[in-house]
Design a protein around this nucleic acid. Structure first.
Lengths: 106, 106
DNA sequence: TAATAAGTTTATATATTTGTAAACATATAA
DNA sequence: TTATATGTTTACAAATATATAAACTTATTA
């Protein structure tokens, strides 16, 4: 596989995190598995939209999906997703803190 | 700051990773600082496009920029960016491996 | 069987992102 | 001063992503 192909796949995986609703879903899931209905209730996102977001995340390997009767259950495909997410949150917090520091000097 | 605001900022930071060229830039930078010209040479991206990608990454706190005379130098704002990126690459690899396993069973 | 409930899929209008080209700003060299 | 080199910014067309609504699928219930 060429480097460019890897970079593209890697970027595609990151894209699956690049939406506020999808970050919220990762946050809600954490280590546990939840049904569609619960995720819908906790996020308040319209079911059609939620289904599409979840499907993007499953396609890109961020979540795994299990179907049981009429219901669908989702969980993180690996704890690494949460770890990566946590690191990005720390990057964000460092930036916000730098902005704060800058403001204090004014 | 509301949860929704945090999720949006968090997603914005992730968006700054969500492009093959930007993943390649993070990969190239690693621990070191590089000038615009070197990044341009290594990636082969048109300078206008490269400048825009770098500016997105600086705005979202992924990179820091230092200007010296006519030149611009870039580095990761924190090693956490590389760590997060590495974790996402592992998520990708796990997914590719699962696909491989699946293929073997056929 | 008919109705309902739980998600999924499709269509589409809107919004956002991207790549390209051209214009621009500015530090340095001739 | 004029020219050049190094990026940056702007404008715009094309590609992608998103939200919403409606139609659809399928398992369960009446």
């Amino acid at each position: 596989m060429s480097d460019k192909t890897i970079y593209q796949l890697h970027a595609d995986a990151c894209k699956a995190l690049a939406h506020a609703i999808r970050i919220e879903i990762i946050d809600i899931l954490g280590e546990i598995e939840l049904g569609f209905g619960e995720i819908s209730k906790k996020t308040g996102v319209a079911k059609s939209s939620l289904s599409q977001h979840l499907s993007v995340m499953v396609e890109k390997g961020i979540l795994t999906q299990r179907k049981e009767g009429l219901n669908s259950y989702f969980k993180l495909s690996t704890p690494k997703v949460e770890e990566a997410c946590q690191l990005m949150r720390e990057v964000l917090i460092e930036r916000l803190e730098k902005t704060q520091d800058l403001l204090k000097t004014l």
